[in-house]
Amino acid sequence: MSLALSACSTTPPPEPSPKQQNLMQRCPSVLPLLTTGTGEDVTLTMREWAAEYHRCAIRHNGLVDVLEGTP
């Protein structure tokens, strides 16, 4: 009589990927307001809006890349 031994093989759970804290920031919900309505004020405010959009877009796209596993 022969005995057959069997064993269960378990694989360890995957390690969570480290979080990149710079990607875990929310975009601002309030942008700078126009103060005087002059051409200079409009130009400076629009530049600040564009800069904030780009900072937020870089974080958002970086987070999407991390979640998708894109290098």
Rank of each mutant, 00 (worst) to 15 (best):
P13S: 06
T70G: 12
T38C: 12
T38G: 07
R59Y: 03
L34N: 04
L63I: 05
Q21W: 05
A57R: 08
T38E: 09
M46G: 06
L3H: 12
R55S: 06
A4K: 12
V30S: 11
G39R: 10
L63M: 09
R47Q: 15
C27L: 03
T70D: 15
D41A: 12
I58H: 07
H54P: 02
L34E: 08
S6M: 13
Q20P: 00
G37C: 06
V66L: 15
W49F: 05
C8P: 03
V30E: 10
P32Q: 04
P16W: 03
P14L: 04
L44I: 14
E48P: 01
T35Y: 12
T10W: 09
R47C: 10
C27D: 00
H54C: 05
L33M: 06
T10N: 08
N22M: 00
R47E: 09
H60L: 11
D41R: 08
E68T: 14
S17I: 05
T70W: 14
P28T: 00
G39D: 13
R55M: 00
D41I: 06
A4I: 14
S17H: 06
P18H: 05
T10S: 10
P13F: 04
T38V: 07
E40V: 13
L33H: 03
P32R: 04
E48Y: 04
P32W: 01
M46L: 14
